[in-house]
Design a protein around this nucleic acid. Structure first.
Lengths: 330, 330
DNA sequence: TTGAAAGCGCTAACAT
DNA sequence: ATGTTAGCGCTTTCAA
């Protein structure tokens, strides 16, 4: 009924608290007999150590904080899943916090991380995050902060990112190589640095290697908008033969208009996208995509965290390379 | 550099620790002047209270545990997002643990919850979970456990579920009302109770209200298998005019074979599914579905948790009603 | 091989 | 209005 503590066990067994503590951690000083007795009683009483007491005493915790704009997202959730999995394997737990793309909530979440004395934090900042100071505070406590995906652009710090520019370039290369004649490229919110990087990389490669190919660049802020934009193009006399989508969000919108107009892929229209890989496989033929893998990025981030914690690593900005995954859409 | 504690602040200000503690919580006993001084210094020193110390001292924590088979799932992640959001709004944090459908990991995760002295746990059990004892232990500490979605069938406890049977019946009703002539119904893994419930409900309603309509019942364990099964049916001479999908997993598989064969929805084939609502909207026309909303279920679960914590609620088994959302697929 | 004691940072009852 | 004290459950140094 009431909570079992070392004290209780020690009273029952007529031993001191410290003996119980040692026995439970299999300390070499303690006799085998005593250990057996203690272990047995602990088991029957269903003793579970109080993590708060341990953390307080040792000034350590076995918890990481993870801050992300939204959990429900095919990229973030696979990142989270990977980090959680590795955390468990290494005896850590994960405290998950959503910022909802609100910098204020983000700051509150950072405070929560500090209050809970997490051993490290993984964070994907919001597009509106300006103040990086609250993040830097963690350095005062030797608490590693690893930025992933959306990271502060003007600060050298621990980062683990996708090869944003490279991914767009791989897609552009593919389009050029396939000798496409007219290309529609739809990107996301112009404000996001990821959009800028991808747009710049894609457009400049096109200008360099294929200046004669007509390229239409558009921006959509939702699948719905991507649907409308692409539909407009598909219905124009000057129909593109290829669409490049910057993200799953764009892709799903474009695919709706393709279905509406009953266009054949890749005969009527070729598609190539940047994606985690889930959505491209929903369609027939499967969509060719440049992979940006959340799961892999999570593993990479966790590895970095461990190195940082072990003290055998300096600040690094890592990039997870992208690769083309062939579907039948181009 | 070193951590700021109440003690440090008290030393700087020449006041006692308890005065600082009270000032920081705006205790009425403390003079306005003192409060100002304390607040100011705390702010400049960037003081953050040690949650572990507070939890230890008060035998409370502001953390909930949430155990789920996998985070990456369009149902669970929206449930998690909802719970996290409400938790934050009420000053709680969420510790997320994946069981990976492994009962052993599930037990380990339960231990972690206890060690961290969480104030309550939300859990979706694995299909293989037999031992309910570890869950019941929490009752000894007055820690509410709320089962959601996949719940122990033979135990009366706090549950928050989708209307599994009802959802299948709503779909069946719709099919009958539309006077469909030949129906293929694809369900998931037979071992899962959710599959059994939906299958039983769907089939028995059909037998009762539409015994003359040919009904083919199949089971698929993956989108790929659903694709193959449906394709086989679509290519047979005795082609069904309607497909019922038990879940998004099934739906995405079926949709692939429909795309492969270039069938027209709803002319060539009508589709109805049970879904969270995300996938049905990816297609054109949008798929008609019976909604099983993870976000709403999360809100419901959180509300229950709060009531249980406040002590003004008894054990309840709640069911989140389903509703038909019309697309253009039937 | 075991025990005693101090202390992690905080709260709260009980002084003053 | 502020201070003193005890103690939450645990680890760890020092002593026996």
């Amino acid at each position: 009924m009431t909570t079992i503590t070392l004290k209780k066990i020690s009273q029952v067994l007529g031993l001191s608290i410290s003996t119980i503590s040692r026995a439970l951690k299999n300390h070499p000083d303690i006799s085998v007999k005593t250990k057996q007795k203690v272990l047995e009683l602990a088991k029957t009483l269903d003793y579970e150590p109080n993590a708060n007491a341990i953390n307080l005493r040792t000034s350590k915790s076995k918890v990481f904080g993870l801050i992300v704009p939204h959990i429900s997202n095919y990229f973030y959730d696979s990142f989270i899943a990977a980090v959680e999995e590795d955390s468990r394997l290494h005896g850590y737990s994960l405290m998950i916090l959503q910022s909802g793309d609100d910098p204020e909530i983000e700051v509150t979440n950072l405070k929560l991380c500090r209050q809970n004395r997490v051993m490290g934090v993984f964070v994907c900042i919001t597009p509106k995050t300006k103040e990086i100071d609250p993040f830097l505070r963690f350095a005062d406590f030797n608490t590693p902060v690893i930025f992933f995906d959306k990271v502060p652009s003007d600060l050298f710090c621990n980062k683990v990112c996708l090869a944003d520019a490279e991914a767009a370039m791989i897609a552009a290369e593919k389009i050029i190589q396939k000798k496409k004649k007219k290309v529609l490229a739809i990107f996301g919110d112009k404000e996001l640095s990821i959009t800028q990087k991808r747009t710049d990389a894609f457009v400049s490669l096109f200008h360099k290697k294929a200046e004669t190919i007509p390229l239409f660049v558009e921006h959509a802020h939702s699948p719905e908008e991507a649907r409308e934009i692409s539909k407009k193009y598909f219905q124009s006399k000057n129909k593109p033969d290829t669409v490049f989508c910057m993200s799953d969000e764009i892709l799903t919108g474009v695919m709706k208009s393709i279905q509406e107009l009953n266009l054949k892929i890749p005969e009527d229209i070729a598609i190539i996208t940047i994606s985690n890989g889930f959505f491209p496989k929903l369609y027939t033929p499967e969509i060719t995509y440049v992979e940006t893998n959340g799961h892999k990025l999570g593993k990479l981030a966790f590895g970095r965290m461990l190195s940082l914690l072990a003290g055998n690593s300096e600040t690094q900005e890592l990039v997870q390379e992208s690769a083309l995954v062939e579907g039948g859409s181009i």
